[in-house]
Nucleic acid binder design. Structure first.
Lengths: 198, 198, 198, 198
DNA sequence: CATGAATGAGTCTTCATTCAT
DNA sequence: TATGAATGAAGACTCATTCAT
C-alpha cells in the first residue's frame, strides 16, 4: 500500500535528513548540493528529481521539522488541562526538543531568521502555528480567570518564545550546557507564570 | 584640525554604512561587494583598501553597530539607579534602538546567528558584553534585596534579552508594527519585573 | 573495449593539447583558462573536473611531453651500442623532436626556467632523467675506454644538452631555421665527440 | 655638471636595482610594481615618472645588465690575443659573472626566454651582440689557421654559449654549486677547443 | 618632481543545475 | 527513476596605472 513508492519515499527522506545534517554543520550558503547528495548516498542529479532546487530542500527540511515540533508539542500539552502547568510543559518540551535535535536547532537558529525572499513567507505560517500554541495557553488562562486580562497575547507569546529560543541559541552557539533543560525551563516558566498570573 | 584624514575616515565609514544597507536588504551571502561599492560611491577596488575581504566588512559593520548599542544603552542606564526602573529602560531602549536602526536590526537578526567560522568568536564577546548589561541589573537588584535570590542571572539575562529580541524579529520580519515600542517594552518589562521581584 | 572511458580520456588529453597550444602562443601567464577551454572545445568549468587549477594544467602538459621525450629518446638510443654513435643520435633526436613539436619547444624554453614555486621541483626530476640519458652515454664511453677519464659527466652532460638546447632556442625565438637539424646536430656532436674522445 | 639631475639618476638606477632584485626573487609576473617601489624606497607613482610601464622596467633592467656583461667581456678579452686562450677567458668570465650576479642570472634565465611580444625584439639585439663576441673568436681562430674551416660559427657560438648557459642554469636552479667556476669553465672550454681546433 | 589613494578592467574558480545515457 | 559529467553564469579579489594634491 505505501510500499509502491517506498523506495522513493526513502530517498526523499534520506535527502532531507542529509540536508539537515549538512546545513547544520555548514549553514545553508556554505553547504553544497553535492555534499547533501553524498551524505544521502544519491547522485547529485537525483536531488533534482525530488526537489526543485537548493532552496526547496531547505524549505522541505524546515517543514518536516516544524511539523514534528508542532505535533509533538500539541501531543504533550493535550495530556494536561491546567494553563499554568501547560506553560511549564511548553518550556520544558521546547528546550528538550532543541537539545534532542541539535541539528535542527542549528539550522532553525539561522534560517528562521534569514530575511531572504522565499523564507519570509514559507517560514511565517509554520512558525506562527507553533508560537500560537503558546498564545492559546495564555488566552485559556485568561478565560479561566487565572491570568491577567491586560496581557497582550501577541506580545506575551513572542516574549515567552523568545526567552526559550535565546536559551536554545546559547546552547547551540556555545555548545556548552551549563544550565540544564530542567533548571532553564523551570526558571523561565516560573518568571513568566508570575508575570502573567493575577 | 580633524580634517587631516577626514577623507579616509569618510570613505571607511561610508563603506560600512553602505554595507549595512546592502546586507540589510539582501543578507550577507546575497550581497555583492560591487553593490556595496556602488552604494558607497567608490570603486570596487577601493573597498579592499579599507577591508581585508567581504567577511571583514561584515565584522566591521558588526563592531561598529554593537559598540554603538552598548555605549548607548550604558549611557541611558546611567541616568537611573533603581533596578526596577532600569529593566524598563533596558527594554524600552533596546526596542527603540531596533526600530530606529532597522537596517542593523535586519543584519543582526541573521548574521549574529550565522554559525559560520569567523562570526562565532567575533560576535560572542560583544554580544556577551551587551547582554551582561542586563545581568548586572539583576544582580544589583538582588544585592539591594529587591529581587529574588533564586534567580539565575545566566538564565534570566538570556530570557529577557530573548523576549525583546523576538519582538524585534517580529518587527523586522513582518515589517508591520502592530505593537508600539512603548506597549511592547512595558508589557515585557512588567512581566519580568513581577517574575524577578520578591 | 578501450572505449569504456575513452571520452573522459579524450577530454583530458584534449585539454592538455589545447593548453600546450595556448601556452606556446602566449606563455603561461598570458594564457587564459577560458582560452584553453575554448581551444579544447569544453566549458570553462570542465577544465576543473580534470585539473586542480591553472598550475596543474601546466604540470600535466609538462609531464606528458617530458615523458614522451624521454621514452622516445631511449627507444632511439637502444638501437645502437656505440657511444660515439649514440652522441650523434642524441643530438639529432633532440633537435628533431624540438622541430617536430614546436609548441612544446616554446613552452619548455620558458616554463622550464620559471623559477616559480611549483615548477622548481616538478621540473627537476623529469629534466634530470632526460639529461642523464646523455650522462650514461659518456660513462659508457669511459668504461669502454673510448672517452677521456677526466671528463666530468656532471659538467659534460649539461654542456652538451645546453648546446643543443640553445640551438633549439634559436629556432624557437627566431622562427627561422637557417641551420638544418642535420647540419646542426652533426656539428654539435662532432665538436663534442672530439672533445671527449681520447 | 652631472649633479643637476643626479638625484633623478639615482632614483632611476635605484628602481632598476630594486626591480632586478624583485624580479630575481619572484619572477616578472609574480612581481608587483608596488614591491619594486617599496624596495626602491619610492612611491608607486614615482616609478611611472621614470618608466613607461612594468614591461619597460624589465627592458631597462635587461639593457643595463646586458651592457655591463658585454663591456665587461670585451674588456677581459682585449687583454689577450690568442683565440684559444680567449675561449678559456670567455668561458671563465661568463660563469664568473653569473655567479657574481646571481640576481641577474635568475632574471636572465627566465626572461631571455620569454616568448612574449616585446621581449622578442628587445632581447635579440643585445643577446646577439653578446653571443657574437664568441663568434668573432672562432672566426679569428679560423683566419689564423688554428681552427677548422668547417666549423659553422652560427652553430658553434650557440653551442658554446648554450653549454655555459646551461651550467649557469644549474647553479641558479639548484642553488648548489658542486662544480666550481674554474673546473666548469676549464672542462667546457677544453672540450670546445679540441672540438674546433685542427 | 613626488606621492599614494583611487580606480576598474580583467580572471580564476566555484557550484547549482541540466541532460544524455 | 537514477546517474554524474558537463555546463557557464557569476563574483571576489588583484594590481597596473592614473591623477589630484
Amino acid at each position: 500500500m505505501k510500499n509502491n513508492h517506498s523506495k522513493s519515499e526513502d530517498k526523499h527522506q534520506r535527502i532531507i535528513k542529509a540536508a539537515l545534517k549538512v546545513f547544520a554543520k555548514k549553514g545553508f550558503y556554505n553547504s553544497r548540493v553535492s555534499e547533501i547528495a553524498k551524505e544521502a548516498e544519491v547522485a547529485d542529479g537525483t536531488i533534482y528529481l525530488y526537489f526543485k532546487n537548493k532552496d526547496d530542500i531547505l524549505i522541505s527540511v524546515f517543514e518536516t521539522e516544524m511539523m514534528k515540533m508542532i505535533s509533538n508539542m500539541k501531543k504533550e500539552l493535550s495530556k494536561c488541562h491546567d494553563p499554568v502547568e501547560k506553560i511549564r510543559i511548553f518550556a520544558f518540551q521546547h528546550l528538550n526538543m532543541i537539545t534532542e535535535n541539535q541539528e535542527w536547532a542549528e539550522v532553525a537558529q539561522v534560517e528562521l531568521r534569514q530575511s531572504s525572499k522565499f523564507m519570509r513567507e514559507y517560514v511565517k505560517d509554520h512558525y506562527t502555528d507553533y508560537i500560537n500554541i503558546f498564545a492559546y495557553i495564555i488566552r485559556e488562562g485568561q478565560e479561566k480567570g487565572i491570568f491577567k486580562e491586560g496581557i497582550n497575547t501577541g506580545i506575551a507569546k513572542r516574549a515567552f518564545f523568545g526567552a526559550l529560543d535565546e536559551m536554545g541559541r546559547y546552547w547551540v552557539l556555545s555548545r556548552s550546557k551549563r544550565y540544564s533543560v530542567e533548571e532553564s525551563s523551570e526558571q523561565i516558566s516560573d518568571m513568566f507564570i508570575e508575570g502573567v498570573m493575577k
